[in-house]
Design a protein around this nucleic acid. Structure first.
Lengths: 107, 107
DNA sequence: ACGATATTTCCAGAAAAATCGAAACACGTC
DNA sequence: GACGTGTTTCGATTTTTCTGGAAATATCGT
């Protein structure tokens, strides 16, 4: 994973609203959640939510699939795992939270 | 960990420059790195770097201690572990990368 | 106290992001 | 093909962030 990709994903999650959206989607699991339902839950204007969803989709952290008239959003767990792995392996070298070889690779 | 704190930390790491700084510090381990050395390594104006360091320090991800005339910056590994734990436990419920009880708590 | 080195604050301009109402669009139904 | 529901795009405003030069501050050695 490139550091710029990681930064992009972290930036996407770095907005309180988007983190709340993403958390909602993660908790919804593979089934996901329609846009309208997210809007209800978080009580925000549709256009604002759409804007944030667009950002999340652009990073790949969220994906959308059509189901009849509604758009279902789902968190991309695989990508999320990759991001966590980056934080652990690339960033948590030496003295913390990493397998022993992380520091070696980091050189 | 509050979701707003997590968002603040993620936002701090979400800037490419700051992520590069933080990664440098993490790789430097507990010994840390002087501000000037970070500046050399990343080749950026001192004021810009100082600005970003301030942001990182405000989140707690980086700490500074004086050593003679130079300021040593060190990554806070404990906080970093906390953030990773948040991503895994709070966000990675159900179908991915989480202990089984995460989904239960999420309700 | 002065000079040298290291770092921050001040300031201001440029760029990007967040917000949200109104209008437009997509899809299914009648 | 008009209607309704669900969602996005457009447009405009406000707010925030990023950036970096110049000046100020801090610390130490002499």
């Amino acid at each position: 994973m490139k550091i710029t990709d990681a930064a992009t994903q972290l930036e996407a999650l770095g907005n309180p609203t988007r983190l709340a959206v993403f958390r909602l989607l993660v908790r919804a699991g593979e089934a996901g959640l329609p846009v309208g339902r997210i809007q209800q839950r978080l009580d925000m204007p549709a256009s604002t939510l759409s804007h944030h969803l667009k950002t999340l989709c652009a990073t790949g952290l969220v994906r959308q699939t059509r189901e009849r008239t509604t758009l279902i959003c789902t968190a991309d767990f695989k990508l999320m795992r990759g991001l966590v792995a980056f934080l652990v392996a690339e960033c948590c070298a030496e003295s913390a939270c990493a397998p022993a070889d992380a520091a070696t690779r980091a050189a």
